[in-house]
C-alpha cells in the first residue's frame, strides 16, 4: 500500500475510528433528511442522526482500562490485578479511594439517557403529526402536499 495512505490510516483512522463512524452515520441521516421526499423517510433520517450523536457521546466516555460506571466491591476488577497491584488495590479499598481510570465516564451516559428520551418523544409526536397530515392530504409525499397547499393547486 502507498505509505502515505497507510500513514494516514495509522494516525487518523485507527485511533479515532469512533468519530469516523459517527460522522458517517450522521451524514446518512442528514442526507435522508435533506433529499428524501417521503416524510416517514425523513423521520428515519432524523432517528439515524440522533443515534449518531448518542454514539459520539458514549464513545467519548470510554476509557482504555475502564469498566462500567458501577462501583463493584467483589467484581472482576479486583481479581484480575497482579500481586503488586492487588496490594495497592486493597490499600485503596481500605482508605475508600476510587481509581477514576477504572470506571468509564458516567456523565455522557447520563446525558444520552436524556437524549434517548427526547428522541422517543420527538419521534412519537412526529409520527402522530404525519398521521394527521396523511388524514388531511391523503399523501405523505412532500411535493404532492406542497402542490395541494398552493393556491392554484387542486383539492
Amino acid at each position: 500500500m502507498d505509505p502515505i495512505i497507510a500513514n494516514f490510516i495509522e494516525e487518523n483512522i485507527v485511533p479515532k475510528f469512533n468519530y469516523w463512524i459517527y460522522v458517517i452515520l450522521m451524514m446518512i441521516g442528514l442526507y435522508a433528511m435533506i433529499t428524501k421526499n417521503n416524510l416517514i423517510k425523513k423521520l428515519i433520517g432524523m432517528a439515524i442522526f440522533q443515534t449518531a450523536i448518542i454514539l459520539f457521546y458514549v464513545s467519548i466516555g470510554v476509557k482504555e482500562d475502564g469498566g462500567i460506571p458501577i462501583i463493584s466491591h467483589h467484581g472482576p476488577d479486583h481479581h484480575q490485578e497482579t500481586e503488586a497491584h492487588s496490594e495497592a488495590g486493597s490499600e485503596n479499598l481500605k482508605h475508600n479511594i476510587i481509581d477514576k481510570d477504572k470506571y468509564a465516564n458516567p456523565l455522557p451516559h447520563v446525558l444520552m439517557l436524556t437524549a434517548i428520551v427526547v428522541g422517543v418523544s420527538t419521534l412519537g409526536l412526529a409520527l402522530a403529526i404525519s398521521q394527521r397530515i396523511h388524514k388531511s392530504f391523503g399523501t405523505l409525499e412532500e411535493d404532492e402536499i406542497l402542490n395541494k397547499l398552493r393556491p392554484g393547486g387542486h383539492d
Binding site: 487518523n12 485511533p15 479515532k16 475510528f17 469512533n18 468519530y19 469516523w20 460522522v23 458517517i24 450522521m26 451524514m27 464513545s59 467519548i60 470510554v62 476509557k63 482504555e64 482500562d65 475502564g66 477514576k100 481510570d101
Partner: peptide, 17 residues
C-alpha cells in the same frame, strides 16, 4: 462531513483516560 472529519483531528483518541 469533511468539516466534521477535519475537526476530529483535535479530538482525543479512542479510550484516552
Amino acid at each position: 462531513g469533511l468539516l466534521l472529519l477535519s475537526a476530529t483531528q483535535d479530538f482525543p483518541s479512542w479510550g484516552n483516560p
